[in-house]
């Protein structure tokens, strides 16, 4: 009975950790994507193609006067073409006439959260054709992150309580199995800590075993799903972190939670048992 209960406790902790871990991994990936966007907090301002180079350059001071603009760099049509060649290769340019490109400004912002407002001001400037900013992706990601983080925190708290309860019940069964031995130990003068430690050690090993099992399962699952999502990443839609980058923090968090649940559950159960 106690063996089955230990197995059940490990199973529940593994399941809880994997659910918790999955949400955390999604949250971490979103956070990383947001940081990447924040690093590129630039707005690409494309000017009218017909604008002369002198007129295009003169718009620079007007752009600099906007409060949220930290810096602006003028990119001539030739420079822009060169940057595309560098990024994508000369063959990408085959068949594209050289005069198709417009002059541009790369505008760096002070605060990315005001990107949408800045975009509107830039759009209103005479001579500006289009304004491209990461504000829409950013706000979508921010709201997804908020939801995922909230769900992640609530789930973590709930699942930790469930795991603690299951672990406490397992150790309670262990103490029940050994109640006669415990009674004799108390009668002959064993201290409470002496009686307690074997159960705490049991809880510790169950918790650590469960956390390591959950870690490897999580790793396998992440690799499997990140391969599929990676195909989207290749198309530039999503950038999935490699598990290698997350390995150590993930292991540390899993082991810490396994330890807390294992030892915490045991302490709860044995404390109650020794009180009676």
């Amino acid at each position: 009975m106690h063996g089955f209960s230990s197995f059940a406790a490990v199973g529940v902790i593994v399941a809880c950790l994997i659910i918790m871990g999955s949400f955390s991994l999604v949250a971490v990936n979103i956070r990383t994507a947001i940081s990447e966007l924040e690093k590129n907090n630039e707005i690409m301002v494309t000017l009218d193609k017909d604008l002369s180079e002198a007129d295009a350059k003169s718009l620079g001071s007007e752009i600099s006067a906007i409060a949220n603009v930290r810096d602006r760099i003028y990119v001539s049509p030739e420079e822009y073409r060169e940057s595309l060649v560098k990024e994508m290769g000369e063959e990408y340019m085959i068949g594209i006439p050289p005069d198709v490109f417009s002059p541009q400004y790369r505008v760096a912002l002070e605060d990315i959260s005001f990107a949408a407002e800045t975009e509107l001001i830039l759009q209103a400037i005479q001579g500006v054709d289009t304004v491209r900013s990461p504000s829409r992706e950013m706000s979508a990601l921010l709201s997804v992150r908020r939801v995922v983080e909230l769900v992640s925190i609530i789930l973590t708290a709930l699942l930790m309580v469930v795991s603690l309860f299951i672990m406490a019940n397992t150790i309670k069964l262990a103490t029940f199995d050994r109640r006669e031995e415990i009674g004799i130990q108390r009668m002959v003068g064993a201290t409470k800590s002496f009686i307690r430690w074997p159960f705490i050690v049991e809880g510790f090993f169950l918790g650590i075993f469960a956390s390591i099992a959950a870690y490897f399962l999580q790793w396998a699952a992440y690799e499997r799903f990140s391969n599929d999502i990676g195909k989207l990443a290749d198309s530039g839609v999503l950038n999935v972190l490699s598990f290698d980058e997350l390995r150590l923090p993930m292991l540390a968090v899993f082991v810490l939670i396994g330890f807390l649940v294992g030892v915490g559950g045991s302490v709860m159960a044995i404390r109650k048992f020794l009180k009676t």
Binding site: R186, M187, V188, G189, A190, T191, K192
Partner: peptide, 13 residues
Amino acid sequence: ESSIPYLRRTLGV
């Protein structure tokens, strides 16, 4: 409470 085990060590039941 912490001294009770030591009292019990002086007894054999």
